[in-house]
Design a protein around this nucleic acid. Structure first.
Length: 468
RNA sequence: GGCGUGGUGCCCAAGUUGGUCUAAGGGAGUGGUUUGCAAAACCAUCAUUCGCCGGUUCGAAUCCGACCCACGCCUCCA
């Protein structure tokens, strides 16, 4: 059996076959760094994290590049609004982005190419397109890609260029184009661009949005690579345009598998900056929702399924994480001496997980396999039939699963306004009361701490506490 | 107008190349076990039913047709 992915360009699931055996090269569209990313944005990034982690789980050597768009209309406009330089603005949000990735326990990409570091290469690719006759230059020094010259245009998005409506937004476009659907490779300088401009064969200006990804993916992964991902809103126009540029410039095939994640919704509407219905990661953490609950919520709905965000889902997610973590902790503390080495369950559990996840990352099926194992393991521990080697084997398997899920070792990111010493002192006082059978005093201490957001858990190894 | 996705128990959600679905898994609920309390865990229970109508078939959540509803894309967007 092999891994199968739903490929946007063929609109069907296909067996995954990397270009080079055992190695996967993936390019994942990253953020435009003009503001904090919201959790809808993170849904896509976390899907990409899941994809990469699963490929690694299956033994592939993965190379991932994620671009950071640090020059475009939004970044320029925002930096001027704030009267700071473009670099100053984008550095602020690059830093914030990396911090958020860490909070959500995403693996760092191997490369984070930034658009402004690839201007010469972009000019080179545009020149190549010009040489091959795919461009024209407008009076203002802008260079456009002539989609009429590329007969495959529209294949990825499944759009027929002749039937595409010319909406109001096109009329707003102040660049001079021959065809309404042609897109800018290079934008001639305009006063609104301030000091953001570079010298080019077509005069002062700045790159169009799409060219950066064609150039940076080619530079870092080669002209032809395995997987390209992003949110479904990138299918058109961004990825369609990238595909056109790359194929026309290099003459090579571009991407073998296009994978796109669906939207995160709020009240059944797309979460977006323009609808102003978004939450940032920081917003949610300030409201007291741990990062692990957020990660779990985003990861456990299939990536091609719309996910309706709600607070109750975060609460449910936290409980699911807790169930897995409690199981893991119980296994580690298990001291029973049964005879069952759990080999049958480990075999079927592992196989079920893989066969589900191999099918286009069917995470629900994968989780079902894990939780069936959890229930069996808990029962075996309660009944004492599990052997200590069985417990160790289960721990190893859960660790492997957690390479993919990546929640067990997460820092909750939560804090309380009281220090650990205070809590420890309360625990000692409570123990003294309980040793004297003074349960009323002991319970009063428990209640006091609960009111402060701290939960006490009595275990055979003593009383532990956690932030609730 | 063109293209596309989805409607499964109280909530989330898998299953949709027909039978093993007497519909997985998580959360909530209910009843038990365990527990000084709490937490966790375990057991039992929780859809004769898969938006609606009709059809094909020995057999349909899964195929076909019509319809209803929700959402998205058609040059800001993850």
């Amino acid at each position: 059996m092999s891994i199968r992915f739903y490929n946007t360009i063929t609109r069907q699931k296909e067996a995954f076959q990397p270009l080079e055996t055992g190695k996967v090269k993936m390019y994942t569209c990253g953020p435009t760094v003009y503001d904090y990313a919201h959790i809808g944005n993170y849904r896509t990034f976390i899907f990409e994290d899941l994809l990469r982690r699963y490929l690694e789980f299956r033994g592939f050597d993965v190379t991932q590049a994620m671009n950071l768009t640090d020059v475009d209309d939004n970044t320029i406009r925002r930096s001027r609004e704030r009267s700071i330089s473009l670099t100053e603005l984008t550095n602020e949000f690059k830093t914030a982005f990396h911090a958020d990735l860490k909070t959500l326990n995403m693996q760092a990409a191997h490369q984070y190419p930034e658009a402004t570091n690839y201007i010469p290469e972009m000019i080179q690719m545009i020149s190549e397109l010009e040489n091959r006759g795919y461009t024209y230059t407008a009076a203002d020094g802008s260079v456009f890609f002539k989609i009429a010259k590329y007969e495959q245009y529209g294949k990825l998005a499944n759009l027929n260029p002749d039937e595409m409506l010319s909406g109001g937004r096109v009329a707003d476009d102040s660049y001079e184009k021959e065809g309404a659907r042609d897109f800018a490779l290079w934008k001639g300088y305009k006063p609104e661009d301030g000091d953001v401009h570079w010298e080019s064969p077509w005069g002062q200006g700045r790159p169009g949005w799409h060219i950066e990804c064609s150039v940076m993916s080619t530079e870092l992964l080669g002209p032809h690579f395995d997987i390209h991902c992003g949110g479904v809103d990138n299918i058109f126009p961004h990825h369609e345009n990238e595909l056109a540029q790359s194929v026309c410039a290099t003459g090579a095939d571009f991407v073998n598998y296009w994978l796109h994640s669906e939207y995160l919704l709020v009240d059944n509407k797309k979460m977006s900056k323009s609808l102003n219905n978004f939450y940032t990661l920081r917003d949610l953490m300030e409201l007291g929702y741990p990062a692990e609950a957020i990660r779990w919520m985003l990861i456990t709905t299939h990536y091609r399924q719309k996910l309706n965000f709600s607070v109750s889902r975060l609460v449910e997610s936290q409980k699911a994480v807790n169930r897995l973590r409690e199981f893991f902790e119980k296994l580690k503390a298990y001291a029973g001496s049964g005879q069952d080495d759990a080999q049958d369950q480990i075999k079927t559990g592992g196989e079920s997980f893989i066969s589900a996840m191999d099918d286009d990352l069917n995470i629900s099926g994968g989780l079902a396999a894990i939780f069936e194992l959890v229930r069996w393991g808990n029962r075996s521990m309660v009944e004492g039939t599990l052997s200590s080697t069985g417990a160790k084997s289960l721990i190893d398997l859960i660790r492997k699963f957690d390479h993919v899920l990546a929640v067990l070792d997460m820092d909750s990111g939560l804090t309380v306004d009281i220090d650990a010493e205070f809590i420890e002192a309360k625990i000692v006082a409570r123990k003294a009361a309980r040793d004297n059978k003074d349960f009323a005093s002991g319970d009063a201490i428990r209640d006091e701490l609960v009111a402060l957001g701290v939960e006490l858990i009595d275990t055979p190894e003593g009383t532990k506490w956690k932030i609730k």
